[in-house]
Write a protein that binds this DNA or RNA. Structure first.
Lengths: 232, 232
DNA sequence: GTCTATATGTAGATAGAC
DNA sequence: GTCTATCTACATATAGAC
């Protein structure tokens, strides 16, 4: 099963390669949008071909099997988020003062939220796609390989900045924070729904909830320690 | 499309009705297990029939269309969780002392976590199924109808017991708490993975993480208010 | 209520002409 | 690199004999 690599630069600009690159991008973009909205099993390769306005066979040619296409879409942008997180962590570590818990949480959640509210709808689709796959054991091996190494670095930094607590509870609190972040990107409908806005279609925006999310996660990580009394 | 109702009591115990009830239960149980593990789009009616060891047509007869079957499975147990939550809230309200935030969070999360660790694997499957569908706008109308009315009552009680904060932030904090709860039931792999236990298959149990989850949510809801400084 | 048989459409994947 | 045509398997759903 031949999967097209990013067309090799043979010094050729004869239109074939250019068209190939363009088709490949159309396929990956369409897959990104559809997987984000309907999930892996909710999308057919035929739908992707139609969305990309390319023939069915082009999806297979540029994307390989369905599962290979999915992983390619996920991997394509991973560095856009990870680079921002990594640089922010490096900057904080290079300072004289150690980073605070609030700074660390904001630095980890921020780049992903930025992606989720980007002007480019294609990047927004990627954020929703990541949210959609992060809840299932099925995709954990992929999530682990792509996102866990950097998450471990943040966890270590949080352990120094956060409350005294055993490592497993802290890891859980960090994962709960990520779950809240992903949920916010997946859907805001319930936040409005619980307020009685069911008939209204205006859900709160991600941007409006960013501060609430970060404060929630910081408070939660603090709460996972033993600093505050468990009131009764 | 005829969907079998819970067999009417015509004073008959001639074996047909008994067998029908048994077949119906087998179909719903098999659907519950498979939907929980693979999601709505990841399961075929043929798989359900095979898992239930009934002929293909029996699934349609007892469950209707695929989507009707899914909703039936969801609705079947909703009261098992909601009744426990509702009774706990009523007990707290009947007391002289008002409930604390910690009590309210524990009372809301507890019955669902109990379901997720029940001795009956069928109830555990239900808990995972609920976790799996709660992240997607697609199923929000169903979630809203079944779970939001009681969640609103809890939100009101939390508003009285929790920090002074605008209602939308508080609703967000409660929804984040629910997201963390659902994530814990969906998967614990990442909690262990971030600790470097990747090669180990032993993830922390839900029961072991129950306290960490509740403390995280209580701290998070407090943090969503303005009680604690945002350190810098 | 049960179950075989089947109607009707779609799935993922690829061969082979251009 | 593109795209038509097609292979094989599987999907949902139901008719109709028992």
């Amino acid at each position: 099963m031949p999967i097209a690599e990013p067309a090799s630069d043979e010094g050729v600009t004869d239109g074939r390669l250019l068209r190939g690159q363009s088709t490949r991008k159309q396929v990956l973009d369409a897959a990104e949008r559809l997987f984000a909205e309907f999930g892996f099993d909710g999308v057919s390769i035929r739908q992707i071909a139609q969305e990309a306005t390319v023939p069915l066979a082009s999806v297979g040619f540029h994307g390989g099997t369905k599962i290979e296409l999915f992983k390619t879409v996920i991997e394509r942008r991973v560095n856009e988020v990870s680079a921002a997180r990594s640089e922010a962590l490096a900057r904080m570590k290079a300072r004289p003062q150690p980073p605070t818990l609030h700074e660390l949480v904001a630095a980890y959640l921020g780049p992903y939220l930025d992606c989720a509210v980007d002007d480019d709808p294609q990047r927004r689709a990627y954020a929703r796609l990541v949210a959609r796959m992060s809840d299932h054991d099925r995709w954990y091996p992929t999530v682990r390989d792509l996102y866990d190494p950097l998450a471990r670095e943040y966890l270590s930094a949080i352990a120094e900045a956060g409350p005294a607590v055993d490592r497993e509870r802290l890891s859980a609190a960090f994962v709960f924070s990520i779950a809240a972040m992903l949920h916010l990107v997946s859907t805001r409908r319930r936040i409005g729904g619980l307020l009685g806005n069911e008939n209204v279609d205006r859900d709160p925006s991600i941007e409006a909830m960013r501060g609430a999310l970060i404060d929630f996660c910081v408070g939660g990580i603090r709460g996972a320690g033993f600093e505050q009394p468990n009131d009764r």
